[in-house]
Design a protein around this nucleic acid. Sequence first.
DNA 1: CGCATATTCAACCGATCGGTTGACGATAGC
DNA 2: GCTATCGTCAACCGATCGGTTGAATATGCG
Lengths: 117, 117
Amino acid sequence: MIAAHAPSLDTVFAALADPTRRTILAMLLEDDMAVTDVAEPFSMSLAAISKHLGILAAAGLITQEKRGRVKWCKLDPDALKGASVWMQGFGQFEPVNLDAFEAFLERELGAEGDAIL
Amino acid sequence: MIAAHAPSLDTVFAALADPTRRTILAMLLEDDMAVTDVAEPFSMSLAAISKHLGILAAAGLITQEKRGRVKWCKLDPDALKGASVWMQGFGQFEPVNLDAFEAFLERELGAEGDAIL
DNA sequence: CGCATATTCAACCGATCGGTTGACGATAGC
DNA sequence: GCTATCGTCAACCGATCGGTTGAATATGCG
């Protein structure tokens, strides 16, 4: 198949549209994790999480490196740059509001295990 | 039904994940438009475009106001703020690169009528 | 009124999505 | 070598998605 080296906005936004995947990204923001550890807080099968991670990797949002029998997942925020540039063109937003993001993350991670966000 | 006053990130990102809808947003960036006019450059049915606009409106990305028999569509960039804040938390990106956005828009609008992006 | 224009609704279609389960391939450790 | 662990693959499922078509609903205009 033809490799998609530069993930399209389609793929990136579609990857971000799922709450499970956004929660995973938020988890990886704190530390790199093995697939099994990523899956632990969720009440769904390992295979499902593996698929989610595959989608995130295809979108370029994470990278996965296999060391031994453990596959480590690492956040790769560069992929968000293109999408972020696209979005910001619409609003001429004020400078980044990191406080708002912190608050958001707290809510998102605080609800781990439940399908709220 | 229960109104979704604050569109979720789910809805916003899902709305942005479709190239047709992103193109529509880019078109509305230049001017407000009637549904029929939005549909004109696309090679798909009016009903399909009407659905797309409905999805964009549900995500809060546009507002629609009916004057006479014409429904005017207007960009509402505020809805992007939440999503933008979320995304920027991951990358600590450099300040907005509007030049990059201009270039992007040119490509996107230059391909109008074809299903490229 | 009668007709054209603007837009949506409803039913349908194939494709994709998010999830499950069970079998499978690799690697680590005793 | 045997066994437990890590992770993916493949087949399947119901739900949603993006599109079509044809009929219906407004509204404007002569």
